[in-house]
Design a binder for these strands. Sequence first.
RNA 1: GGCGACGUACCCAAGUGGCUAAGGGGACGCUCUGCAAAAGCGUUAUGCAUCGGUUCGAAUCCGAUCGUCGCCUCCA
Length: 467
Amino acid sequence: MPLVLYNTLTRKLEEFTPLVEGAASMYTCGPTVYNFFHIGNARSFVMSDVIRRYLEYRGYDVNFVMNITDVDDRIIKQAIDEGIDASAVAGKYTDAFLEDIARLGIRPATANPRATDNIEGIVSHIERLIAAGAAYTVEGDVYFRVSAFPAYGKLSGKRLEDLQAGARVDADSRKEQPGDFALWKTAKPGEPSWPSPWGAGRPGWHIECSVMSQKYLGDSFDIHAGGNDLIFPHHENEIAQSEALTHTPLARTWLHFGFLNIDNEKMSKSLGNFFTARDILSMYSAETLRFFYLQTHYRSPLNFSDDGLDAAAKGLQKLQGLYDQLLTAPDGEGIFDVGPWEQRFIAAVDQDMNTPAGFGVLFECARDANGLLRSDVGMTANAKAALRDFLRRSALGVFGVLHETETARADSSQIGALMDLLIAVRAKARADKQWGLSDFIRDGLKDIGLALEDGKAGTTWKRADNA
RNA sequence: GGCGACGUACCCAAGUGGCUAAGGGGACGCUCUGCAAAAGCGUUAUGCAUCGGUUCGAAUCCGAUCGUCGCCUCCA
C-alpha cells in the first residue's frame, strides 16, 4: 500500500511516486520575515515538517527546502514602522523564525535559501524570460506576460477572462494585461535595491521561489506545499515563471494546507484575533500545539481555541504517560505484538496524511497496552522495548508530539537506583501499614516533580511535569 | 459575478458505497487502591444540516434547499 496524496493540480488523490526511486524532493514556501510568524503559519510549517518526517519514516531520502523571503514590500513597511532599515528587519525576524521553528520541534530543512542571496539568479532568470518573450519591461519594472503562458490558471482553476472580470484593476495600469505580475520592481529612494539591467530594484514576490526551488531541487521536483491562499496567485505564478522556461512540470504534487481560524473567522490583525506562535508557545508546549494541529486533517480548516489546546494537552498525557511508564514499569510476562498496530498506523497515515486517523490507531494501541501493563501479568521487557520503539518512531519521530522526559533509566542511573530504594522503603512502610510515612514519601516526591503510582505489579514513577 | 470547500454525539474530529459510525476531551457509573494517582471497563449518535433521487445497500454517489467559510487583492 503506497502513500496517497491529494494533488491540487489534478484535484485527485494520487499515489506518491517520486521522480527518483527512494528519494523525495519537497519545497515549502517559507515566511516573509517582516514579523513574528503566527499560529496559522505555524500550522503550515508543522504540517510540512510532519510530511517530511513521514516520508523519511516510510524510507525515503528527503530533500526538504524551505525558503526565507527577506525582501518584500511588507518588510519595507515594517522597517518604516520600526524606524530601522529593511535589512535589519529581515535579519531580526529571520533569526526569530529560525528560533521559533526550532521551538516548534520542526526539524531543520536541508536548506533555507534566502531571496537576497539569490539576486543574481533571479536577475538572470528574468533576463531569460524576457528573451523568451514571456516578460516585458516598463520604465524599470519587469512584468510577466501571462498571455505568453497558455496553461496559466491550471493550478487554481481560474481562467484569465474570469480574473479580469472579478479583479479590481488599476485603471491606468502600465501592464499589458491585468493578470500580468511584477518580476522586478524599481526601487524608490531609501528602499533596498540591487543593480540590474533595468536599473536598481528588487525582485517581485513570486520569482524567488521559482529560482530557488530550481536551484536546490531542479527543474522538476516531487512536492510543493503551502497554505491554501498561496494557490493563487503565488503558486500559479511560480508555475508560469518556471515552466515558461523549463517546459516541464515545476512540481508533480501540489499540497495545500487548510486555514487556521479563530472563532471560525480568518485570523487577522485588524480583527484583533492574531496570535504569534511565540506567544502560544509560552503557554503551551510545542508537543501540545503539534498534537492540536495534527488532530485535524491538513486540508480541513481548523478552529483555534484555548479549550481545544487544553483538550490536546490532556489527551497527550496518556501517550506520554505510557511512553514514560514503559521505561519504569517492572518486567512482566505479557506478550504484546506491535506489528499489527504499526501496519494500521501506516495504512491510516498513507491515506493522504490522515494524521487524525493515525492518532486513532495510536490511542487504541495505548489503551490495549495500558490494560496489559497495569494487569497483574504486566509486559515482558522485550514487549515494552518494542512498543516504546514503535512510539518513538511514530508519535515522537513522525508526529513530534512526545518528548524524552528526563526520567532516568531505572537500570542505568543513580536517580533510578535512588527511586528504587525509596520505593522499596515505602513498600516496607506500606507493608507495616505506616500510611503516614508512605504518604510522606509520596507527597515529598510529588513536590519535586516525581509522581509515584501504585499498581498491581508494583510501584512505578514518572516525571509529573510533562504536558 | 467567477471558482472552491464544508455542515458527523455536549465540544473537537476520522470515516467517502456494505462488519456494532474510529479516536481525543468532557460528563456519569464501576473496577483496582490503605488513601491517592494512573490505568482499564461501561454508558453518552437506530443516526451523520434538511428534503428528494440512484442502488439489493449511502454519512459516503446525484439533485435541490438551508447554513457556514475560503480564494478571485498582501496573506500559511
